[in-house]
């Protein structure tokens, strides 16, 4: 699974990186690591706008957003 590390970056960087990742995603899944709720929500919204599904898991202060195309 391709992974994008957007921890420590503030929006819109995580969204830009996630969108780039989604554009290159032909099948399978993409994991985006972020460390703020704002970034998590923004990445999830960006994924929804692209018609993708998201799945979130939290660990300490960090979130992993797994994006998959429908």
């Amino acid at each position: 699974m391709k992974q994008i590390d957007a921890r420590g970056l503030s929006c819109p960087q995580p969204v830009i990186m996630a969108r780039k990742g989604m554009a290159e995603l032909s099948g399978g899944k993409l994991e985006v690591l972020v460390d703020s709720v704002t970034s998590r929500d923004n990445v999830m919204r960006a994924a929804r706008l692209e018609g993708c599904e998201t799945e979130v898991s939290a660990k300490d202060d960090e979130f992993s957003v797994i994006i998959s195309k429908k």
Binding site: P12, V15, R19, R45, A46, L49
Partner: peptide, 9 residues
């Protein structure tokens, strides 16, 4: 404004 220009959000 940025989100509208950047991602049509």
């Amino acid at each position: 404004v940025r989100d509208v220009i950047l991602t049509r959000d």
